[in-house]
Every structure is written in C-alpha cells, then in structure tokens.
Simulated assay, not measured.
Amino acid sequence: MMSSGRVALVTGAGRGIGRIIAVRLAEEGFDVGITARSVKQLTETAELIKQRGRRVVVAQGDVTSSGDVSRVLAGVTTALGPVDVLVNNAGYLGRYGSFADSEPDDWWRVVETNVRGPALCTRAVLPSMLSRRRGHIININSLQGSRSGGTSAAYSVSKAALMRLTDSIAAETTGSGVVVMDLSPGLVRTAMTDDRPDLGLLPAEEWTPPEAAAGHVAALVSGRYDALHGRFVHVSDDLDSLLPRTAAHPDARVLRLVPAGPDDPLSDA
C-alpha cells in the first residue's frame, strides 16, 4: 500500500457502497473520515479501515443538517487534516409508486438527502480545496436522473438536480485544481434497492458489484482522469477510452437541453 498522506471524507459510509468506497480509499493510502446516521454501522466500517493501516474518524451526522455537516468536517479536519477527496454517497430512494400516490414529506426527504446533502458537504470542503488548489469531489449519481418514467419521481428529480449541481460547480472551479464529477455505480444490490417491486424480475447480469464503483472512485481521484471534470461517468465505462471521446464532444456526458433542429430557437440560446 502506498501512503498518499491525503484525507478522504465519505458520506453514507456505514454500509453498502459507501462502506466499500471508504475501505477502498484506505487501501489506496487515504486516511478516511466517515459519516452516516448510524454509529454502529460506522464503527464497523472504521474497524475495516483500521485493518488497512489507515487512520479513521467516525462522525455521526445527517448530511441535510448544516450544523451536523459543520461538526463532521471540524472533527475530520482536526484529527486528520484538510479534506482532499469528498465522496457524496449518502442517498435516499424513498417509496416506490406514482407521484399521485406519493407522500409529500417523504418525497421531499428524497430531494433533500440527494441534493441538499451533497450541496452542504461540497460547500463545506470547497473553500479549503480552492485555497490549496487541489481536491476531488465525486457525487454518486444515477442514470435515473436522465430518464423519464420509473417508479420514483422524487429520486429521478433529485438525481437530475445533482447532475446540474455537479455541472454548475464544475463551471465555477475549472482551472482551479478542484475536480468535480458524477459517478453512477449502476444497479447495486444494497438495503436501498431491496424494496424494489421488480426485484425478483431482474436478471443476475443486471446487478453491478459495489466493488466496481469503489474501483472507479479510486481511479477518478488518482488525477489520471481529471479531464473528465464536470462529466457523468458510469461504472461500466472504460475510463481510458472515455477520455478522448468526451474531449471531442464538449457536451458529452453533461446535462443539456438539446435543440430539435437548426431552426429551433434553442440553437442560438
């Protein structure tokens, strides 16, 4: 294991994808701050990180609370140093069903968790990253944000909003040394997906192992793929082949409203 002397903060790190990402970053030489709402689950993740020989800070909190986010960041930076990598992994799927049958408070909780959470965490770490002219922010996103339909409008809306948040922050930070990207982990079997109504109908090949997402996170924060700044990356992507393809198309893998043709007024917008 190489020692990077760098610090990562992973939200939603108590279980599932977040836990595996946090452990993988420890294997890559990062000291890791981990946060989630369950202290018990965080403690289990922390033990795995310690087994990799890295320092870890457990900071229980709710990413939708600005007070909690400030406290988490203070605890991590005091013990480990400034954050070099932020992985906004904490997310909430909500209840399946139509928008007409949705419960408004639960619907809004999905949006708050998936958009307000990453916004607060990013806002907390960004000034330090900008002053040091280095940092990586990985927002765990979903293709559901670019598709219509589905069984959770709140989730789709939140992930589309997260794409726009990534795009906006990327535009502000271009050339600053701070790199921001979306990463879709694919369809991963976790506690969050166990309530899918079509769970028994999905073939085995539809599922992606969570280790694949962790491997992509490790690659994206290595610096080798910083040219993908502001882009949407999928776990199935071959990153080396994606680089030249996105370089040739400025609007590739970003959220855009595409004009309907040359006479569409959007063409000149």
Results as ranks from 00 to 15, higher is better:
Gly117Asn: 08
Pro262His: 09
Met163Leu: 10
Phe99Cys: 06
Asp31Gly: 01
Ala218Thr: 13
Arg19Asp: 00
Val178Leu: 10
Ser66Gln: 15
Gly29Cys: 10
Gly223Thr: 05
Gly149Cys: 13
Ala36Gly: 10
Leu266Met: 14
Gln41Asp: 14
Leu126Ser: 07
Ala100Leu: 09
Gly117Ile: 11
Arg231Gly: 02
Ala161Lys: 11
Val56Gln: 11
Asp105Asn: 13
Arg245Phe: 13
Ser102Cys: 00
Ile17Glu: 04
Val179Met: 09
Asp106Ile: 05
Gly67Asp: 15
Ser146Asp: 14
Asp101Leu: 14
Glu206Tyr: 13
Arg132Pro: 05
Arg37Cys: 06
Leu165Met: 15
Arg253Gln: 10
Ile21Trp: 00
Arg224Cys: 12
Tyr225Gly: 00
Thr166Trp: 06
Ser102Glu: 13
Ala247Gly: 07
Pro203His: 03
Asp237Gly: 00
Gly117Cys: 05
Asp238Cys: 10
Tyr225Lys: 02
Leu48Val: 10
Asp167Phe: 12
Asp264Glu: 13
Ser236Ile: 14
Val115Met: 05
Pro82Arg: 09
Arg256Val: 15
Ala8Met: 04
Gly18Asn: 06
Asp101Arg: 11
Ser222Trp: 11
Ser146Ile: 12
Arg15His: 12
Val110Gln: 02
Thr190Glu: 11
Ala90Lys: 03
Ala252Glu: 06
Arg109Gln: 10
Trp107Asp: 01
Asp198His: 01
Ser158His: 02
Pro203Ser: 00
Leu255Phe: 06
Leu48Cys: 01
Ile137Thr: 00
Thr190Met: 08
Pro118Trp: 08
Arg54Gly: 10
Gly135Asn: 04
Gly53Trp: 01
Thr246Tyr: 11
Val233Glu: 00
Leu93His: 09
Gly223Leu: 05
Leu126Asp: 06
